[in-house]
């Protein structure tokens, strides 16, 4: 997959400019706090709009300011893991993972082999029926990853996915995430982190945002 990004956005008192062509499977996005890492992910996802530029995935244009093209997030077929995980607190782990089944856009109602495989790989089986509010930080992180991957997106955006986990849990979560990502080679991944060791655990392809 080839993801072309060339965007410009005014952020409070400075300009976010980013230009890259991504062809490998995994990229790490680094930069100091407030530089616009999350904003960049949100622009790629279509949750925030840039003032100028163009984003295309393979031959499909996702965003083009000049031609006034701006595909809605769902049409971009991506998975987004939010920094605060954004799990639906009123649902169980399984209902969070299978949330897509409640939507008209995804009529399939059966547990797929891929879903079962993901649940097994992420060691979520014992917690599926529990409300997400009763899960530990590491368990919630894995539920959020599973939910982001369940529809086999062409692009997975991970925004500081290991924030809030202690060191031991963080490295365990990184190992599990790496293992799962090797099972989904067709999914391109951008991982945002302010920690170089987290990023290099995944990839040597590092995108640096600087002020």
């Amino acid at each position: 997959m080839t993801l072309n990004i060339d965007i410009h956005k005014q952020m409070n008192e400075r300009q976010l400019n980013f230009q890259a062509t991504l062809t490998n499977q995994i990229y790490g996005l680094m930069g100091p706090s407030g530089v616009g890492k999350t904003t960049l992910l949100r622009i790629i996802a279509g949750l925030t709009t840039a003032e100028a530029g163009r984003i295309s995935c393979n031959q499909q244009v996702w965003f083009d300011a000049q031609q006034q093209i701006n595909l809605p997030p769902a049409a971009r077929q991506l998975g987004f893991m939010f920094q605060n995980l954004a799990l639906f607190p009123h649902l169980s782990a399984q209902a969070n993972i299978e949330f897509y089944q409640r939507l008209k856009a995804h009529p399939q109602k059966v547990t797929t082999n891929f879903e079962q495989q993901l649940i097994t790989e992420l060691e979520l089986q014992p917690y599926l029926t529990r409300p997400v509010t009763q899960l530990s930080g590491g368990q919630r992180q894995r539920v959020a990853l599973c939910r982001a991957l369940i529809l086999q997106p062409q692009l997975l955006l991970l925004d500081e996915p290991f924030t809030g986990l202690d060191d031991q849990l963080r490295w365990r979560a990184i190992e599990l995430t790496k293992k799962v990502l090797t099972k989904t080679p067709s999914t391109q991944v951008i991982v945002v982190s302010h920690r170089r060791d987290e990023i290099t655990a995944f990839t040597q392809n590092i995108l640096q945002l600087s002020i």
Binding site: A74, L78, A86, F88, F99, A105
Partner: peptide, 9 residues
């Protein structure tokens, strides 16, 4: 936003 990304109207 999480629901929107998954395709919820």
């Amino acid at each position: 936003e999480a629901a929107t990304v998954m395709g919820a109207t």
